[in-house]
């Protein structure tokens, strides 16, 4: 039951992009086409889950026992950065096809605050490892959902006659606002 609440909460109620404002850069940056949006979501799903597992283990088996929680920020960002590098190298060797699909998105993920944000949130919410993994996957799905929905909207916006000053980013942000408004319908669901 807790898992279902975590999943619905992370995907719909507290959507990581539209409600928590994490990962806005890729949300605006790579949402011009549905295909790139799907690629980015796949890469985020992969890295976010892995990063949450590793950071959870570090927090509970290194930082907590030694009482050095104040090093959390430094450790986590380093772990995520090296993890991304490692995933890139392994993927290149093991599965060139997957690397082709996700490759260009991987370096971008280091500075995606959604990954670090979810890692820290998992610790703050006191999840155990399994809950943390479910939380990470659900958040990644929420990220993907918002990104794909938004890229669909933006593909249509390309064809619309938008007032000159609003073209590009302004109209994209306002559409994102309306999308967020739609997601507010899920509030109080859990």
């Amino acid at each position: 039951m807790t898992y279902i609440i975590i999943i619905i909460g992370a995907i719909f109620v507290n959507n990581i992009v539209l409600n928590q404002f994490l990962g806005i850069c890729p949300f605006i940056g790579v949402s011009k086409k549905i295909n790139t949006a799907i690629g980015m979501s796949g890469a985020v799903l992969f890295v976010m889950t892995l990063a949450t597992i590793v950071t959870w283990l570090i927090q509970n088996y290194v930082l907590n026992p030694f009482g050095i929680q104040f090093l959390q920020t430094i450790t986590f960002i380093l772990v995520i950065a090296s993890l991304v590098q490692m995933v890139e190298i392994i993927l290149k060797k093991v599965s060139p096809a997957l690397f082709q699909a996700l490759g260009i998105f991987l370096p971008l993920i280091t500075t995606n605050c959604a990954v670090l944000g979810v890692a820290i949130l998992t610790i703050q919410k006191d999840f155990n490892l399994m809950e943390g993994v479910v939380f990470a996957i659900a958040n990644a799905i929420g990220f993907g959902l918002a990104l794909v929905l938004f890229s669909g909207i933006r593909e249509h916006l390309e064809l619309m006659e938008v007032p000159k000053g609003m073209r590009g980013v302004p109209i994209a942000l306002i559409s994102a606002g309306i999308l967020a408004l739609a997601f507010m319908g899920f509030a109080n669901l859990v």
Binding site: L18, V169, L173, G177
Partner: peptide, 22 residues
Amino acid sequence: LVFILPPGAFIALGYLIAIMNR
């Protein structure tokens, strides 16, 4: 109230950027 809630952030920033462009 919507301007305090998340959607208002996107909408307000969108209009501010449009004004800045102008």
